[in-house]
């Protein structure tokens, strides 16, 4: 069936200067109970891949460099 790509704003922002995924860190990817975060293989930085957030904050709390900021998803902000 025909498909389209809708844009959505996601609640998780990664500060790419602070993120050390290029040094092998995957802490936030392992923490997220909903498995929403991934490492961009080209940029070697973490990013939010799926907009299915419980705004529970383990990703932010566990990040060793405080690179993550979780906002309340726009729909309920």
């Amino acid at each position: 069936m025909p498909m389209t790509l809708n844009r959505v704003s996601v609640p998780v922002t990664v500060d790419e200067d602070a993120c050390i995924a290029d040094k092998g860190c995957t802490v936030c990817v392992e923490s997220c109970p909903l498995d929403l975060l991934a490492i961009d293989l080209l940029k070697k930085k973490a990013f939010m891949k799926f907009d299915e957030c419980w705004y529970c904050l383990p990703c932010e709390k566990d990040c060793p460099t405080q690179a993550i900021r979780v906002d309340i998803p726009y729909l309920l902000r």
Partner: peptide
Amino acid sequence: SSGYLFGTYENPT
């Protein structure tokens, strides 16, 4: 009621 699928009371996993 926000319509956000994962904004549930329970952990949505």
